[in-house]
Design a protein around this nucleic acid. Structure first.
Lengths: 266, 266
DNA sequence: ACCTGAACACCGTTCAAGT
DNA sequence: ACCTGAACACCGTTCAAGT
């Protein structure tokens, strides 16, 4: 946890399915007039202000006080830019050295940290969802996660699937969080209160809607409406995560640790 | 299973967060010159041919032999059209009457059927991911799924999360399937063999890549590369599904059925 | 009642031309 | 070596005008 380099070996050569980027001509001078990094930075600024649908090459250029065509000297396409943003978001992600005694805790930390990064920029989950972490920069993270699963004692075919499952869960959950925020923003002051979209008001309205359903037709939805709406997103995230962790734990050879959260005494 | 109406009560009134659609002026005449349905149909045709990125209002209009602006008499926006496609894809979805003895089987059937529908049109998972099933037409399905979980005996706070978790898994899995297909299509004949993207060749190349990694740095990735690539998508889908089902089962009051797949003898 | 045509304000990407 | 300006082929959406 306090050792960022632990479990993260050197990046591998580029994989054959990676979009090849034009090799940097040479090392950037002290204060570059425009660089790949500055373009990515500006793109994040535009993303946070306008959302993914408002993120255009022209907007990024405008943010940098430059013509659109100037961007294409540093970035080969918009897709390339999005991939750079995805890679930069997860760059320097701390991965733990696998500890069989604490594997569930480690996966929990990993998932929470991933969600936190996705939440740090608007619509980032939508960008993440469109990419696969098998790039040179991100492969060490995949390796470390697999290490945690295998060291814990999970069968290989389960461990191979677990990484995907967890990543999909994180992306999907944050994506949905963002959708509710967008909805709440559009719902209240149209464009005025876009800063703090009243999520509580949205939740209340949803709950009213569920409560207004014909009781005979939607008994379960009515009964659970409180739970589906109330409660922080953090709690809901942890519950889904726990379901997955318990499912994984059920594949451990030791039956004692199968259906319990804290396998401290082994 | 053979009774489509079972467990699917009448649709509720429109929820407050649904985009309001202009009310249909009146019932469509015998052979409509252009209708909401025909627009949606044409949109599916364009989607399958060009993918989501190539799905434009102009393309849909062209498919119908009509001007772009003509579409806006039947569909209020492109977003509206996408929502109609999403709703139509899952319309008439068969939901089972909840049976506590077979809840896992029922969830499995639901998930497989959902994946099948998503696979029936190109890029459909991307569209599905961007929507929430709380529309009037889809709410009965959510209700039925919650019914299965609650009747099985799952605690309410688990049941409330389970539906989301399963849906996210289905969407996310199929989304990734589509990404590999796109990659394989781009990778082989650029635009020639777009019909049958050689997925096997892609898998082989991926496996070669993993095998070429420095063994010291990526031991787990190397060890699992076979499992992560080989094996049909169907099997991989079922494994992830099984992990979730086992996790859910671990919350059942009866410990006997906690970590087993077939709780026949209760 | 239903569709057309033209327009508006945008896109991503390319490329000759400037400095 | 790095950026500009203009152009190309597109977008979603609106609206007066036709029939």
């Amino acid at each position: 946890m306090s050792d960022p380099a632990a479990g993260t070996p050197t990046p591998p050569p580029p994989s054959p399915w990676e979009r090849e980027r034009p090799a940097r001509t040479h090392v950037t001078p002290p204060r570059a007039p425009l660089s790949r990094e500055r373009v990515v930075e500006a793109a994040f600024t535009v993303l946070d202000r306008q959302g993914l649908d408002g993120l255009s090459m022209r907007q990024v250029a405008g943010e940098l006080g430059v013509t659109v065509s100037a961007l294409y000297a540093h970035v080969s396409s918009k897709d390339d830019l999005l991939e750079l943003m995805y890679t930069r978001l997860f760059g320097g992600f701390e991965m733990p050295a696998p500890d069989p005694e604490r594997w569930q805790e480690q996966v929990r930390d990993y998932a929470r940290a991933g969600r936190k990064r996705l939440l740090s920029h608007r619509d980032m989950a939508r960008i993440s969802m469109a990419h696969v972490p098998f790039t040179a920069e991100l492969l060490p993270h995949v390796e470390s996660l697999l290490a945690v699963f295998r060291t814990a004692g999970l069968p290989d075919r389960i461990a191979a699937e677990a990484g995907d499952l967890i990543s999909t869960y994180i992306d999907g959950f944050v994506l949905e969080e963002g959708m509710w925020q967008d909805r709440a923003a559009r719902h209240s002051g149209d464009a005025s209160s876009l800063a703090r979209p009243d999520l509580g008001e949205m939740a209340a309205e949803m709950q009213n809607y569920f409560a207004s359903l014909p009781p005979g037709d939607f008994p379960h939805l009515r009964a659970l409406s409180g739970l589906m709406v109330t409660g922080s997103s953090d709690e809901r995230f942890d519950i889904g995560l726990e379901i997955i962790l318990r499912g994984l734990a059920s594949y451990l050879p030791d039956p004692d640790s199968a259906a319990h959260t804290a396998p401290e005494a082994t």
